[in-house]
Write a protein that binds this DNA or RNA. Sequence first.
RNA 1: GGGUGCGUCGCAUAGUGGCAAUUGCUCGAGGCUGUAAACCUCGCGUCCUAAAGGACUACGCAGGUUCGAGUCCUGCCGCACCCA
Length: 397
Amino acid sequence: MRKKRAGLLPRKLKRWPDPHMQFKILKKSAKSNARLGILKTSHGEVETPALVSVATQAVVKTLTSEEVAETGAQILIANTFHLHEHPGEQVIQKQGGLHSFMNWSRPLMTDSGGFQVFSLGFGKDFGMGKILKEKSADSIQSGAQPKLLKITEDGVFFRSLIDGRKLFLGPKESMKIQEALGADIMFAFDECTSPIANYEYTKKSLERTHRWAKLSLKSKKSKQAMFGIVQGGRFKDLRQESARFIGGLPFDGFGIGGEFGSDKKEMMRMIGWVVQELPEEKPRHLLGIGYLEDIPKIVRAGVDTFDCIVPTHYARHGAAFTSAGKIAIAKSQFLKDKNPLDKKCPCGVCQSYSRSYICHLFRAREITGMRLVSYHNLFFFHSYVKTIREDIKREKL
RNA sequence: GGGUGCGUCGCAUAGUGGCAAUUGCUCGAGGCUGUAAACCUCGCGUCCUAAAGGACUACGCAGGUUCGAGUCCUGCCGCACCCA
């Protein structure tokens, strides 16, 4: 089946590229689809399953790269759209590429800008994310365009967030930028669809994303690895079609993107449809999912890597994750609390700072409060994922 | 001693006849999943109500004018500035 599909590809795409990346599955769980693996890149190895920390603007917000490394981060993901705007890929290229620019010598990914097609488009128009939180009467019909973007067959016209100038990003442009940035793993340019997009819209978008996937592969000149992205929204046949199509292209791994319906069960079903169709031996990256409670589920579903803004984004909004649950550290009750954020946590923040102090920093709007919680949350998440890797090793998951 | 100006919900402000009263901050509650996010939404006189809504009390204090006063008038108190 897959071979047949591959036969439909243009001849140029038939040969697998020779990227500086390898994926090895060390162990498959007998209890679930979970796998223990190792992702090798020229900047080092990533033990999977792994949480990819988000460094959109070539920084994990509030932290230095050294600090990020201390939290147990193995790999980061930066963003093509944002870095193209700010400071521009040429600047980064002249500084020796993203690794050198941000002083991060471990593996790096770059997202393609496809998520911004959604977040700055329909996501913004309707004030919703890629998981529907409450029922919506709105629906995105085939042929609809977001207010501030124009989606064409060749790519997307954006408005700069900084000065309003027009920016164009398509598969070729995204590849060129990602090659200038020089991450170990790039993502194909896609359109992340909205949870209120109807079947027709999602299908048309999917076909476009598939064309873009081929063009992304075709435009690639470097030895960087590239992951294709599966779309198809909440529609089973589209998800499967997309997984088969993208899975049949000579990518080095696969991203599972797009909307994830309106509840966790639906999301897990959707991931299941896709994983079933993807080539077993290649890494699977789940894009932008990673609430703490999601992590064991997605790992059991067969996801190898996943990125999520939650540890850092929530940290800046005063939410600290602990073994006893999430706490809103800025609440006045914590001013009296001598304990660390988490008594069981061995991280540097929990060894040295009290809830009282961190609470004070938040209430006084001191940026160090955000730094301390970001560091702790990342440490906490990475430690948690490590226990999951151990669980797979010990056949507990 | 004389003159001028000002006193509004914890703080700061808007408000020159229809006002439970603007806005910001503080405070409180909620939200955030490939980061337009050190952000956003909501609440913030008291009481009743699930809510719609209702009742009461309020713009330094005391009087007055008026159908109606935070707004106009008189006196007092306090603060600031100017002149002696």
